[in-house]
Design a protein around this nucleic acid. Structure first.
Lengths: 201, 201
DNA sequence: TTATAACTTGAATGACCACTCAATAACAGT
DNA sequence: ACTGTTATTGAGTGGTCATTCAAGTTATAA
């Protein structure tokens, strides 16, 4: 009946994530978006509706990818706590690594800080995603508690928020481009915080 | 010889801090700046040179103010460690409070995340300020170690970075606008991290 | 009072912003 | 080959961006 779409939505979104993650919403112009996606304005607007729409979809794609990575990471560990500790150390390594990701800081946090007083809709979306992540970490922590890895009196939600704050802080520190060894030490220190909540010392 | 300046530089900078802290560099237009400072473009450019120049001075003013607040806060404590712990709890309360500051997150971190891939000069400035803060915290931690508040083997620089990351994470979490009690708990949990480095348990 | 220097004003500037749409191109079904 | 449908193109839209500067205003010095 008609012509094929030359562009794959998923591929285009990945490229959009790359640009938005690096430069943020206000820092990415349509000109740059056109170049990054190799699409002309008409196609972009036909596919994603608006710059807002594209950013929103990109942020959702980023969050989904991040969630998948955490899940995959934890698959490799018998102990949930050790998995989380290694996750923190892994972030510290990634943040120490040069020129890998578009940015070392978390795109969700960057979006939250950028948009909280300029773009409520984006801030709401970032907040929702952060709540979902908090919940999923809380689920893991609760499971670890039930498993006996953590002291019985542990408040899972509360520990989850402490961990989420660690990740935010760690990745924001990453943006400072400190020496990789320093980032590794920081990751270790954050992982060690969890030891204080474990049953066996 | 000539006319007085109608505008006080310091006052204007305070107003600029209010706007830039809330909306960031890209999110603040010259129109909004004119309104916030109650100055016309000519006066702004005569006084601060450019939007960049104004932002840079505002960021420096913000950092100086923040440094002063930390120093004043610690004056009220005999124990440096307890002073730092209370500082964390205080941030948590401020972040839980409604409609106080222009933003709950730290302007320096906001600037770093916003500008690291769009405005290298601003990113450099933010990095310098963060290094200076790290150093000043390290000095406090070292003093606490020498005082015998912290275990002798404590790496002051390293603990300083862990604390800085806590502040970053805490204030970023503040931007989520969670329940004040939740923020207080988070502040307590972060303060408790320091207990692990203390001499007396 | 007058001359002069310092400061303020705001309309004007060209560049760039997100976005639109008529024209064109590429397919599928007949 | 022809037709109908859908995708792509890119010059063009009005608006906003940071910035400039000639003209106007206000103070001080002579």
């Amino acid at each position: 009946m008609a012509r094929h779409a030359r562009y794959d939505r998923k591929t285009a979104l990945e490229k959009a994530v790359g640009l938005f993650w690096a430069k943020g919403y206000h820092g990415s112009s349509m000109k740059q978006i056109e170049q990054a996606l190799d699409m002309r304005p008409g196609s972009i607007y036909a596919t994603f509706g608006s710059k807002d729409g594209l950013f929103s979809e990109a942020l959702a794609a980023y969050a989904e990818q991040g969630g998948r990575e955490l899940a995959v990471h934890l698959k490799g560990f018998d102990s949930i706590v050790e998995g989380l500790q290694d996750y923190l150390r892994g972030i510290a390594c990634t943040c120490g690594d040069k020129g890998a990701a578009p940015s070392r800081a978390c795109m969700i946090v960057k979006t939250l800080l950028e948009s909280s007083n300029t773009h409520p809709a984006l801030a709401d979306q970032a907040n929702s995603i952060l709540s979902a992540i908090e919940q999923s970490i809380a689920g893991l922590v609760e499971q670890a508690r039930v498993n006996g890895e953590l002291v019985q009196s542990t408040d899972s939600q509360r520990l989850a928020r402490l961990l989420q704050a660690q990740i935010m802080g760690l990745r924001s520190m990453g943006e400072r481009k400190l020496d990789p060894q320093i980032m590794r030490d920081l990751g270790d220190d954050m992982a060690a915080i969890l030891d204080g909540y474990r049953t066996q010392h």
